[in-house]
């Protein structure tokens, strides 16, 4: 019976360790690196969110919503920004899953982020839901 108790204790310890870990690890060098490139890119993207040229997608990325809001010559650059931002966001989700020892969480992390990006978006930005764009 003692053994059982010990195992139960061990279990409790593991469980409490699991519960105590209420914060996800987001301070690895890789994540910090991605965060800082995304932060500096945001200065370039922000005006496009505001003008409605770029919107937030339901799957945690960004997409070109209306290129006509951007001068012709700048449209390829906006497409490039979007491609880079989406690549960074994908690696961010993957790295968070990886950093917390659960690569299989990537999809869950992506969908959590998708909700939070949209929730935290400024009024007037465009948000995609069910294939349609709505102004927040």
């Amino acid at each position: 019976m003692k053994r059982l108790q010990r195992i139960a204790m061990l279990c409790l310890l593991i469980a409490s360790a699991a519960w105590a870990q209420s914060n996800l690890e987001i301070n690895t060098p890789a994540i910090s690196q991605i965060r800082s490139t995304m932060q500096s890119r945001h200065a370039q993207l922000a005006p496009y969110y505001a003008s409605g040229a770029v919107g937030l997608t339901a799957d945690g990325g960004v997409a070109l919503r209306d290129a006509t809001a951007v001068p012709l010559a700048q449209r390829p650059a906006v497409q490039g920004l979007i491609a880079q931002e989406n690549a960074d966001r994908a690696s961010l989700y993957r790295e968070i899953a990886r950093a917390n020892g659960h690569p299989e969480w990537e999809a869950d992390i992506r969908s959590t982020f998708a909700q939070r990006w949209i929730e935290r978006a400024q009024a007037g930005w465009y948000i995609q839901s069910g294939g349609a764009w709505n102004k927040k």
Binding site: L64, D66, A67, T68, V70, L72, R75
Partner: peptide
């Protein structure tokens, strides 16, 4: 001209 999404256009 301009396509609806503005990705094929001329001015």
């Amino acid at each position: 001209f301009s396509s609806a999404d503005g990705l094929r256009a001329a001015a």
